[in-house]
């Protein structure tokens, strides 16, 4: 029994096929990186796992249970948490209150306020605690996405492009936060265009193109595979 397994997930918007029979599994404790050009269906795949979008066909199994019919709230309570690519902050609430929502309604068992304070510390949002989420910068809003997702105490964390636009130093501190979260026992799937950041933590890479899974395996092997090179560098590339 694998931790998460996707079985032939299909999703189309009108004539556009966004995910085309995507299947793969993730083992408990892995960090899996997902790569693919824009429009490859990566974000939709996350939405299908987190329950914010329903597939046309196919199944999602989490720890052996078919959760395909579960809504997003129930999947969160089961331990799946998504950090959105485009942040959806609660603009009228402070940074602390945003995190408190995750700590209160997720699957954390600790006292919500204490837990929210800890998460705020871990993600370096402390100095912004009392600011309205609507008034912080885009980068801070992305960090807040991560903080809220962590506050739900997930077993499986889905990170959707959180390293873009960071300076090298910020990127290093993000990576160390991700390593901390991972070593506390959380399984992570991470979509990222900042390839060097992704490669520094990913144990496995999955590549999507036009909704299809085109590569899956050891990061080095995947990065060197002919299919992946042709997607990123053009059909006739020989590097």
């Amino acid at each position: 029994m694998s931790f998460l397994s996707l079985e032939k997930l299909n999703k189309r918007y009108g004539a556009l096929v966004v995910t085309d029979a995507v299947s793969f599994s993730v083992a408990e404790g892995e960090i899996v990186g997902i790569l693919g050009p824009n429009g490859a269906g990566k974000t939709t795949l996350f939405n299908l796992i987190a329950g914010t979008v329903r597939p046309d066909s196919g199944r999602v199994l989490f720890k052996g249970d078919d959760i395909s019919k579960n809504d997003a709230a129930l999947r969160c309570k089961r331990g799946i948490s998504l950090s959105f690519q485009v942040p959806h902050p609660f603009n009228g609430m402070t940074v602390f209150e945003n995190i408190l929502v995750g700590a209160t309604f997720g699957r954390a068992t600790a006292d919500p306020e204490t837990h929210a304070l800890q998460v705020m510390e871990l993600t370096g949002m402390k100095t912004k605690a009392n600011q309205l989420a609507g008034s912080i910068t885009l980068l801070e809003r992305k960090r807040l996405e991560l903080a809220r997702a962590l506050a739900t105490a997930p077993e499986l964390l889905l990170l959707d492009e959180i390293a873009g636009g960071l300076t090298e130093r910020e990127c290093q501190s993000l990576l160390s936060a991700i390593r901390d979260v991972h070593s506390s026992g959380v399984t992570i799937i991470w979509i990222e265009h900042v390839v060097h950041a992704l490669l520094s933590v990913a144990q496995r890479l999955v590549v999507l193109n036009f909704g299809k899974l085109i590569a899956d395996g050891n990061p080095e092997a995947v990065m060197n595979s002919r299919d992946v090179k042709s997607v990123y560098l053009g059909e006739d590339a020989h590097v």
Binding site: A50, G51, T52, D71, A72, A73, L74, C76, K77, S81, L82, F84, H88, P89, F90, N91, G92, M93, E97, L100, V101, G102, T104, F105, G106, R107, R148, A151, T152
Partner: peptide, 22 residues
């Protein structure tokens, strides 16, 4: 606690749902 959920729903339904609010 319900108020926290209500205020969150007011600001973003999709984020509320994905943070466990029914």
């Amino acid at each position: 606690r319900i108020g926290l959920a209500l205020t969150a729903i007011r600001d973003s339904e999709i984020a509320s749902a994905s943070l466990g609010i029914k």
